[in-house]
Amino acid sequence: MTEQILWRLAGSLIWVMAVAILLVKTHQSARLLYRLQALGEAGLLAVIALDHEPLLWIDVIMVLLIKEIAIPKILGPQKGMIARDYGAKGTVGMTFLLFVAAAFTLGGLALGQVPGLLHPLVAGVLLGAWFVSFMHLSSRYETWSMSWALLSLDTISGALAVAVAGPIPEFAGVGIDVGALVVAVLLALLTRTIASTLHTTDVRDVEELIG
């Protein structure tokens, strides 16, 4: 029972942060929200590790080191650029995004109820978060926002693949998460390269969507 509650808490934290990163991405908040989302992933992995797969502690440690420290640090030194290119300005835009996020979340929850998965509710929450991140990817065009969308999607995918899909060997779980972590680090590095080369986070030189 306690395990189920912890699963749901961790899954919910990942979902809440996926929605929050969609809405707010100022220099400080984006990194903080991403760290909290990674904490959700680490929590999910820790529950499985505690329960029956001790090898997953390796994942927990790596997630904490890479997502709590390394990636926010890689994406750290662009404060001025972010302040210039990004700003959450309109309440109407935010409300619209919240409604769409709610619709996608309901879709994820409904999908989770299709028989066949071990943890339908957590799977549904994570699928909802996954759809929200996909929507985030397609609704904005500046690299700063899309980077966080992709990093959020990476976290959700790693959690979904390892924790929800079904029983897989520990080393496979570790492998999947290591793969997702490597992708995340490379994404962060490329984002920084692009920002430092273009001196902007807006690849299309258009004013980003307000909200």
């Binding site: 066949g116 998965l117 996954w130 996909f134 990817l137 992709l150 999607l153 990476d154 995918s157 979904l160 693949a161 899909a165 079904g166 029983p167 897989i168 999947i176 793969g179 997702a180 992708v183 994404l187």
Partner: peptide
């Protein structure tokens, strides 16, 4: 990369099920 993550989740779900 968005596609790659979809492929990972889809593959894991299909094969584990």
């Amino acid at each position: 990369e968005a596609g790659g993550l979809a492929a990972l989740v889809g593959m894991v779900i299909a094969l584990t099920v």
